[in-house]
Design a protein around this nucleic acid. Sequence first.
DNA 1: TCAATATATGAATACTTGTTCATATATTAC
DNA 2: GTAATATATGAACAAGTATTCATATATTGA
Lengths: 116, 116
Amino acid sequence: MQTCDHVREHTATADRAKKNLPAPAEIEALAGVFKSISEPARLKILFALRQGELCVLHIVEAVGGTQSAVSHQLRILKAAGIVKARREGQNILYSLSDAHVVAVLELACTHLSCKF
Amino acid sequence: MQTCDHVREHTATADRAKKNLPAPAEIEALAGVFKSISEPARLKILFALRQGELCVLHIVEAVGGTQSAVSHQLRILKAAGIVKARREGQNILYSLSDAHVVAVLELACTHLSCKF
DNA sequence: TCAATATATGAATACTTGTTCATATATTAC
DNA sequence: GTAATATATGAACAAGTATTCATATATTGA
């Protein structure tokens, strides 16, 4: 590979870009968040939880799929800090972790001009 | 699988959630956007482009990796509508598609309490 | 036209990840 | 304690995806 030096000003921009890159750990964390909401099955769960707290079987009812699959997805969302869970008797109630989640979803919707 | 009817109110919420789910096509589109920014290599490219328009080799310089790998990633970002490209002589200059991209990144950063 | 530079791409491989199936854990009611 | 309900999880398989290598295309200048 060669170096590209077609415009000195652009080389400066590249240098600045390199210096201002977030730390690897932060990049990984960000990637993790986006990865966790980049699966249709998981996105459906998030949209379902916008209506409020739901137990696992109700989530299954709302989004479809098997109980096992949904449970695995919930684990991923929880590990990523996107949803939180609390036990109430036999049930475990899931809900969205914080308002950022919905905000990110809505921004992305705006980007795509969808109506949510 | 059985039905869960521990609280009638929650069943109503589940029904509402099911009805208010975005259409499959919209879910897929959203998932596509998030998937395209869920890879560390691609996130780095986006952060680099925050500094301004850059040609491919300068992006390579900024984020590391091979020219081929970066080019493949750019293709994915472009297909997802995250970045745009224009030719200028021998170079192809890439830039962020619109302000939503940066806004989503910054929101996610807030969520993680990073400093970007 | 030829050489050099910049970018893109197809095929192959390796890696990651989602789903399924079977089973385990936990809570409640009897 | 036993049965029933709700949820979680490990292993295996299938599907998707990132990277590499080699090569192709496109632009510029001689």
